[in-house]
Design a protein around this nucleic acid. Sequence first.
DNA 1: TCTTGACCTGGAGTCCACTCCAGGTGCCAC
DNA 2: GTGGCACCTGGAGTGGACTCCAGGTCAAGA
Lengths: 124, 124
Amino acid sequence: MISYSPAEVSQKTGFSIDTLRYYEKIGLLYDVGRTAGGRRRFDENNLNLLRLLRCLRDTEMPIADMLRFVQLLRAGDERRRERLAVLREHDSRVEEQIARLREHQRLIRHKIEVYTAAESTTCS
Amino acid sequence: MISYSPAEVSQKTGFSIDTLRYYEKIGLLYDVGRTAGGRRRFDENNLNLLRLLRCLRDTEMPIADMLRFVQLLRAGDERRRERLAVLREHDSRVEEQIARLREHQRLIRHKIEVYTAAESTTCS
DNA sequence: TCTTGACCTGGAGTCCACTCCAGGTGCCAC
DNA sequence: GTGGCACCTGGAGTGGACTCCAGGTCAAGA
């Protein structure tokens, strides 16, 4: 099976090597292989998990929640429903997040228009 | 002119009273009135600025950048173009942010389908 | 064989944006 | 005039998520 060095994984996932070590230490990342000399070797499974963690992280899921999710993952099929629930709930939070951003963008764009129209310094 | 107590402003803007004080201390919020006894009284200008700060904050603008923006605000009309530039640039970052969220949402939704379809525990 | 760069560990340090605290004062209703 | 709540200040503390460090090891090329 193909395996990857920390540097390669860092490059592929955008997590720093320190972060990879940190995630492994706290249990977010598991089943990471080692060479005889003790160096990490990451496989496709590790990479796929990291890609999912990247998504969850970038959509504001706190580490503690990701940890619970990973525990459900490791618990196997009997907790599939719970994993599903976590993701569904998170998905709707992402939806709200996007809506909020759009809302804020509206005001920012309004300000842009106002400044483009060259008015006074008051914050109207 | 109508003015508001810290508690009212906190309620209206969603910033805690401590945060209002903090923002004033670091210079994000300026020209806040006081009663004879030293209590803050906020006016419509303060409120409008806070509303804008809320948008910038919620769209991930760091405090340091907001501070630069506020300095441009206070500098008056001659720096209107720079304010405009800051907002335009930020607007496009918000756009990217939304795009990234959508992208991540796609993977999350894919996972949801996968789990709904009841498969193994590997992170595929 | 030697060098060099990537990697290892545990633990301390950093950064950001607040949030809390102690000790004191203002103000309004009763 | 007094009780009690909202508010004041400077400064210390917090939480989350890394990031850095010292001191050592591994491994591939010259």
